[in-house]
C-alpha cells in the first residue's frame, strides 16, 4: 500500500517536473546566443542580454519580424537577444513601458510605426510620450500602404473612385493604420465616402471587400499582395512617393495631379508611412550605445543570410537608418496643421 503510494508520488513528481519546465516556458522563448563578437566599438554589449519587446502576442507580423532579426542582431552585438511579447492597448502599452526603461540599450522594442507615430502626433489618449523622445535605432521593414478595391467592383482606377459616390472603406477602428490612411485618402482625394469600422483585423476586412460588403480598404502591400495576385482585390494606388516594384502599373499617390495643399498633406502622409516597423529604444540612450545599436542593426538587416531568410518568409526587409527616422520625426512635427487635425479626427472621432 505505502509502496504504491510512494510509487505514484514519484510518478507524479516526475511528471510535474516535466510539466513545470515547459509551462513556464511559454510564449516567447527564442533566445539566441551569439557566436563571435560584432563590430569593434560594440564591446559594451558583449555577453549582455538585450530584450526585444514585441507589443503584440506571438504569431503576428511584428512578432515574425522580431524573431527573424533577433539572432542576427545578437551576432552583431556579441550578446544575446531575447524576445518578449507584451501586448496591450493596441501596441501602446509596451512602448509606454519602454519609456521608463533603463537607457542602456538592453531593452528595445519593435513598434507599429504608423500607429504609434500617428497617435503621438494626434496626441491621442493612451500615448504618454513624445515621439522625439524615443531613440530611433532603425527601421527593419517598410509597410507600404496600398489602396485596393474588391475584384468584383467596377472601379478601375482612382479617378473612378473619385467620381463615384458613397465609397466604403473597411477598417478595424479609429487609430488603426487602415483607418488613418482611409480617412486621409478621403480628405486628400476628395472621395465621397466613409469608413466602416468594427472589423476584426485586416483578414475580416479583406473578406468583406471580397464579398462586396464594402468597396475597398487600405493595407500593407505585403498582406494585400496575395489577394491582388489572386484577383480578389484590385490595387488602385500606392501611398508612397514612388511606385512599388511589385505593382509597376499602379500609380503612386505622389504622381497624382494635386493642388498645393493636397500635396503637403500627401507628403506628410508619406512621411508617416515611412516609419513602417522600426526598432526603438528608451529616451536618453548614450551616444556610443545608440550608434553601436544602429550600426549593429544595419549590418544585421543588410547581411545576405538574413536577407535570404526574409525573402523565403516573404517578409522583405527595407532598412531605413535611425538618422533618417529622426528626420521624419522632425518633419512631421512641422506638418501642416490640417494634417494633424485630420489625424486627430482619425484617432478620436469627436
Amino acid at each position: 500500500m505505502s509502496d504504491r503510494k510512494h510509487q505514484s508520488r514519484f510518478l507524479f513528481a516526475l511528471l510535474g517536473v516535466v510539466a513545470l519546465f515547459a509551462t513556464g516556458c511559454d510564449s516567447a522563448g527564442t533566445s539566441t546566443e551569439a557566436a563571435g563578437g560584432g563590430g569593434g566599438d560594440c564591446s559594451m554589449f558583449e555577453g549582455e542580454t538585450v530584450k526585444l519587446v514585441v507589443p503584440y502576442s506571438p504569431g503576428g507580423g511584428y512578432d515574425a519580424y522580431a524573431r527573424m532579426v533577433a539572432p542576427h542582431l545578437a551576432k552583431e552585438l556579441g550578446g544575446k537577444v531575447v524576445i518578449e511579447n507584451q501586448d496591450g492597448a493596441g501596441g501602446l502599452l509596451a512602448i509606454n513601458n519602454l519609456m521608463a526603461a533603463e537607457p542602456d540599450g538592453t531593452r528595445l522594442a519593435i513598434m507599429n510605426g504608423v500607429g504609434v507615430a500617428g497617435g503621438a502626433l494626434a496626441d491621442a489618449e493612451g500615448v504618454r510620450f513624445d515621439l522625439q523622445d524615443l531613440s530611433m535605432i532603425g527601421r527593419v521593414a517598410e509597410q507600404k500602404p496600398v489602396f485596393v478595391v474588391g475584384g468584383g467592383t467596377d472601379y478601375k482606377s482612382v479617378e473612378d473612385v473619385q467620381a463615384g459616390k458613397g465609397f466604403r472603406f473597411a477598417s478595424t477602428g479609429p487609430g488603426a493604420a487602415d483607418f488613418v490612411n482611409a480617412q486621409m485618402l478621403i480628405q486628400i482625394l476628395g472621395i465621397d465616402g466613409r469608413v466602416v469600422t468594427g472589423f476584426d483585423g485586416s483578414d475580416e476586412s479583406e473578406l468583406a471587400v471580397v464579398r462586396g460588403d464594402v468597396d475597398g480598404q487600405t493595407g500593407d502591400l505585403d498582406s494585400r499582395i496575395d489577394a491582388i495576385e489572386a484577383g480578389d482585390q484590385r490595387p488602385m494606388l500606392v501611398i508612397d512617393a514612388e511606385r512599388a516594384k511589385e505593382l509597376p502599373d499602379v500609380p503612386a499617390i505622389a504622381e497624382l495631379d494635386l493642388d498645393q495643399q493636397e500635396q503637403e498633406l500627401t507628403k506628410s502622409l508619406i512621411d508617416l508611412s515611412a516609419f513602417g516597423r522600426p526598432i526603438v529604444g528608451p529616451p536618453g540612450l548614450p551616444e556610443d550605445r545608440l550608434s553601436c545599436l544602429r550600426k549593429a542593426l544595419q549590418s544585421a538587416v543588410e547581411s545576405p543570410k538574413l536577407l535570404a531568410e526574409a525573402d523565403k518568409q516573404q517578409r522583405p526587409l527595407t532598412w531605413l537608418s535611425g538618422d533618417e527616422l529622426d528626420d521624419r520625426v522632425k518633419r512631421l512635427a512641422d506638418a501642416p496643421a490640417e494634417f494633424k487635425r485630420g489625424l486627430k479626427d482619425a484617432y478620436e472621432q469627436k
Partner: peptide, 15 residues
C-alpha cells in the same frame, strides 16, 4: 501544459 499554447508554439517552430 497550460500556458504553453498551440499557436504560440507554432510561431516558435515556424523557422
Amino acid at each position: 501544459l497550460p500556458g504553453l499554447g498551440g499557436s504560440v508554439t507554432l510561431a516558435l517552430m515556424l523557422p
